[in-house]
Amino acid sequence: MKKHVRIMLVAVLSFALVGAFALAGCSSQPAEEPKQEENTQAPETEPAQEPVELQIFAANSLSKAMEEVQSLYMKDHEGVTFADTQYEASGTLNEMLGAGSYADILITASKGTMDTAVDEGYVDPNTRFDMFTNELVIVTGEGSDIEKSSLADIATGEYKLAVGDDNVPAGNYAKQSLSTTDPACYIDADGKTGADSTGKGGTFEGTPIADRVTQGSSVGNVCSYANSGDVDLAMVYSSDVYRFGGVKIVGTVPADTHKNIIYPAAICAESTNSEAAQAFLDWAFSNEDAIKIWQEWGFELAA
């Protein structure tokens, strides 16, 4: 009887040990990790910048420099291009805007023409600033024997002279200076002289150069008259000598005989790209490489 009980006890203990080992084996299996849901949503990307084409209306004398500056800007600013920039006499640019032409930026060659643009609502006055300065010079053809000249020489009536017409700021400045000679070579409509004159609406009649003046519709035409020998002397900006060539400077017109030569710039009131237009102007006025280009073509940044 005792032997039978002992056999039964051994059997129970053996079964218990087998169960314990089985449980230990099960608990050693690694737990299955929960499956992660697949992300079927495409990653977010920043929207591509819309391409911008800027239309600039600029004074004639800026053409060569502006072309180089625009090319430089497009290299560093992907997505920005320029429409066919319009280079005309500043007064003509205003006439174009008044007739409904579209532009993002206006740069004129005188404060007076920008004043007109502001008064007529062509530009946003809050964006206006003075961009460049220039100087008025007396030139002659490269092959001319004339080596030196002055306002006093012009007042002798000995030389044929070319200046811009009333739509050309360089012509306005020239007439202001000619009103200061003795005797006067230009008669202001209001009897004013020098910087007090607008250089518009007056006459050469009754002066020493009454029949000796040719007026051009652009500074390019004025330079060409001197280059071809049609006239002996011409009055243009110093930057025009770099731009057109074929002429040489024989005199500098005293700055106190005319208004300060300033090129103002502004964003046009109808511009649909005002932010991009302002970014270009800011860059053109501050980038070292751009400034170097302006200076190479005879322009200095206004202080």
Score class of each variant (00 low, 15 high):
43 P>C: 00
76 D>W: 07
219 V>P: 04
172 N>W: 03
123 V>C: 04
46 E>N: 12
271 S>E: 03
228 S>A: 09
289 D>M: 01
156 T>S: 10
204 F>I: 03
47 P>F: 00
259 K>P: 00
280 F>C: 05
205 E>S: 15
135 E>G: 10
23 L>R: 06
59 A>S: 14
171 G>P: 02
290 A>S: 14
251 G>W: 04
141 G>Y: 03
43 P>V: 06
48 A>V: 11
84 D>W: 00
195 A>L: 04
167 N>R: 12
286 S>V: 03
223 C>L: 10
244 F>L: 10
28 S>D: 01
6 R>N: 15
69 V>G: 02
62 L>C: 04
264 P>K: 00
144 S>F: 01
38 E>Y: 07
185 C>Q: 08
186 Y>C: 05
281 L>V: 03
47 P>A: 13
256 D>H: 08
250 V>F: 12
161 L>D: 00
225 Y>R: 03
87 Y>I: 05
20 A>Y: 13
117 A>F: 06
12 V>Q: 06
298 G>R: 00
188 D>I: 14
156 T>N: 04
180 T>G: 08
234 A>M: 06
169 P>K: 03
147 E>A: 14
224 S>M: 14
101 S>L: 07
133 T>D: 09
156 T>Q: 03
280 F>S: 03
56 I>P: 02
221 N>D: 15
173 Y>A: 15
165 D>W: 00
136 L>V: 09
64 K>N: 13
262 I>Y: 01
285 F>Q: 13
2 K>D: 12
265 A>P: 00
220 G>V: 11
3 K>H: 10
235 M>L: 15
300 E>W: 12
136 L>Q: 08
19 G>E: 02
209 I>A: 05
39 N>S: 12
163 V>A: 08
45 T>W: 01
218 S>I: 05
228 S>D: 14
49 Q>T: 10
146 I>G: 07
7 I>E: 10
179 S>F: 04
251 G>F: 09
30 P>R: 13
